[in-house]
Design a protein around this nucleic acid. Structure first.
Lengths: 248, 248
DNA sequence: ACCTGAACACCGTTCAAGT
DNA sequence: ACCTGAACACCGTTCAAGT
């Protein structure tokens, strides 16, 4: 029984005749940077749980497997997103790559720039904090060698000693990390793509916690801005002390 | 055709005859708390990427599906782990649930207790920081109502005003979060279950970053302990100022 | 009452194959 | 050179079924 069962509809009509016609969406060649950029905006939309190689591929009109031409794997993609975020600071016109009106102004601008970035990418920022750094000197959230270089050489140019500059770097990073992570966390960090059910429960059995119950009003107030400004001022004071101390 | 097809090997022998014999491994009834505890130690071993409902089930000699009797889902399990961690602070003999030798001692002990906990659970601690809090007053890493109650009522008993206590709470949490997250991150936070390849590359093209290259020695030094102690001292000073200011 | 088997809809990633 | 299809080994979760 060697019957020709290959009797399916062979669409030879379209194949070669209609050449020279562009596909509907002009085939952008899809490089690594557009993948990372798209991954970031997608992550901001759907949260970490929603970012999937397959879904990201679909977004770029491509099968998931095509992404592996440009990115070694999902982990590397996440790292690339973090780097993309941090390097994006150079594009912020309020942020200076080196001091112009003194180091205090330099650090003020940088701190506020990172804060704006964090608030613009609430769902992505936790990644900046939790991905393991590639080197011990790349402390989150300043996780790009470029910026560490900018930070340190900036302070050195302003008369800091090596030790003072490094100490300032340490203080600056843990200050930023603590404040910003807390801030984006309370902004409902990674609720993800799930339906957010409005919790209308007034006080879920807060009767055993009288102080929390009494102060829940004050505790819920959003003082993020003042907290940030005040703590930043105090940090700058401490860095000043540190600077003169290392010079004396 | 109503034949009795139930002719499989009916093991009626063991069923009732040998009653009063325990199965080889004493069948612990598997409650929620042992699941959470096991999940935590497992997480500490394999990292967040390695924690799987199926693998956790296998660890407890049970199919993954059995876990759903005690835990609504994986997300809830992660939240439960976080709570378990924080409430574990009460078991630390160095930590006091309320002030005994003044509020500074109280906060010192609490801060060091949280630090020990973070360092004992390097892989799990980032969860404490990144899970979205259930209420705006539950700021990481002090994410259990019990502890917020302990913290606030402790300070109030020491003469703090409501405002000063709340402000101290805010300062204390962001200080802890920033320092500890940074510390566990540099301890190679969530490398996960992957093989950690020793990176023997000396300086991966650090030639464009002269300052980082020159200071990489200082930058790599581990000053975690001093940083923590100094910053904690400064925090306590700020809280003191805050306390008297609200009283005057 | 407690656990299991089988199934569903999804993952990340590989590799040979298409154009 | 770039993309795809099909496949593999895993996920979380459901539900009817077993004991």
């Amino acid at each position: 029984m060697v019957e020709d069962t290959d009797a399916g509809p062979t669409p030879d009509a379209d194949a070669e005749i209609v050449a020279g016609r562009k596909p509907p969406s002009a085939r952008v060649p899809l490089d690594r940077d557009t993948i990372v950029a798209e991954a970031l905006t997608f992550l901001d939309e759907v949260g970490p749980g929603g970012l999937t190689m397959r879904r990201l591929g679909a977004r770029l009109n491509v099968e998931a497997m095509s992404l592996y031409r440009y990115v070694p794997g999902k982990e590397d993609l996440l790292d690339a997103i973090v780097e993309h975020l941090i390097r994006g600071l150079y594009a912020d016109p309020e942020v200076l790559a080196e001091p112009r009106d003194g180091w205090q102004d330099f650090l003020q601008r940088l701190a506020h720039g990172v804060r704006r970035m964090a608030l613009r990418h609430v769902k992505a920022f936790p990644l900046v904090a939790s991905r393991p750094p590639e080197a011990p000197w790349l402390r989150p959230p300043l996780r790009s060698v470029d910026w560490v270089e900018s930070f340190l050489s900036g302070l050195l140019a302003e008369g800091f000693t090596d030790e003072a500059a490094v100490a300032a770097y340490r203080g600056f990073t843990s200050f930023l990390l603590g404040h910003l992570l807390l801030e984006v966390a309370t902004h409902g960090a990674d609720v993800g793509p799930l339906d957010v059910v409005e919790d209308t429960t007034p006080d879920p059995s807060l009767e055993d916690f009288p102080t929390v119950a009494r102060l829940s009003g004050e505790l819920s107030e959003d003082h993020a801005v003042e907290e940030f400004e005040i703590a930043l001022e105090q940090l700058l004071e401490r860095i000043t002390a540190l600077k003169v101390e290392h010079q004396g």
